[in-house]
Design a protein around this nucleic acid. Structure first.
Lengths: 188, 188
DNA sequence: ATATAATCGGAACGCGCGCCCCGGTTTCGT
DNA sequence: ACGAAACCGGGGCGCGCGTTCCGATTATAT
């Protein structure tokens, strides 16, 4: 299913342009950006976008997919760290930081795990890796043990909401996330 | 500007019906509910709704106003408590609990303090009272002192997001909020 | 060069929703 | 009881957006 058909030259060029424009637009405005705007930025008609991606959401996932996969890879790399607690903290912090720079990432992460969208294949990897980090940090004694993967998704959503709110109010970045992480430390 | 004009009997009746229907609808679905739906539930045309409330948002605020005021009153009452830390905790917990039962409250509280909406008059009261509770809890040594009102709004947003996510994933209610409150305790 | 098929672009459609308009109806003072 | 003023309802407008359609255009094989 990979080689399909050799795309015509102009088609390939336009597909690339659409992807680039979509990446920029989604990153800046998230899912909220109108598809026409993406087409315009790509110098292409709306019809062209739909020939390459059946739906707006498909385009969104195509754009976010490698980004998410990259984070999943980072998480897997961190799972071999000698200090699991620090690895867990670092990963969550990094996720939040990057999401603040990329509304698409924000939208993708916040949509994760809602009952209507039972964790798309792209996201399964990152959450599995995150779960591994969590488990290690808990075994390590750094993170309280009454937290599970479902809680983690809720926590991330909360962290994103808090961080977004805080920055809109000119508060220094990262503080809210640190606060949350404090709460996750094993009870004293 | 209060007595304006004595409303005609049918007008007064319809206004009351609209308010009741709006309360139910907003409570169940938040701002997302279409105005036509409210009119339908009230057994009234859309035009009638707009004769009494110039805009959908005006209707929303009319509905949420007394609710918010009531919470502000509770907060002021709690500010005389002998254990400020407990009072602060109780109020935040109560706010989150109630918001989980009332999407309108949720929407109202999350919209609070965004740069585009510089804290409407209705909300000023509740946040002022909440700030008093916060200050007392900080003086009491229960809550860390590097938190201000702006942070508090962010924290509430985060708590709502976490709690919503958690309940959608069948997690017991209140845990995420407790977690956040833990983080607010003075550093050990 | 020419035929063929893939591709393009943007006009057009459907839909949902906030909001306005106006002919018909109801209330209320007299 | 009756006329004027207030009020009602729901059809309709405008808008934004996702998606589709189709005549024009362009790449590619021969």
């Amino acid at each position: 299913m990979t080689p399909d058909k050799p795309l015509r030259a102009d088609a390939r060029r336009n597909r690339a342009r659409v992807l680039a424009a979509a990446e920029a637009a989604f990153s800046a405005e998230g899912m909220a950006v109108p598809l026409d705007e993406i087409a315009r930025r790509a110098g292409v008609g709306a019809g062209t976008v739909y020939r390459h991606f059946p739906t707006k959401e498909a385009l969104f996932e195509a754009v976010i997919h490698e980004r998410i996969e990259q984070f999943a890879k980072e998480a897997r790399a961190l799972s071999a760290a000698e200090r699991p607690g620090a690895a867990f903290t670092a990963f969550l912090t990094r996720l939040v930081d990057q999401a603040m720079l990329n509304k698409a990432l924000c939208d993708a992460l916040e949509a994760a795990g809602s009952p209507v969208k039972p964790l798309d294949g792209t996201q399964r990897d990152i959450w599995a890796a995150f779960a591994t980090l969590l488990a290690a940090a808990q075994r390590d004694g750094t993170v309280r043990t009454d937290i599970d993967l479902s809680d983690l998704r809720a926590l991330l959503s909360g962290a994103l909401a808090m961080e977004r709110h805080a920055r809109a109010g000119d508060r220094p970045p990262g503080r809210m996330t640190e606060l949350l992480l404090d709460a996750l430390h094993a009870r004293r």
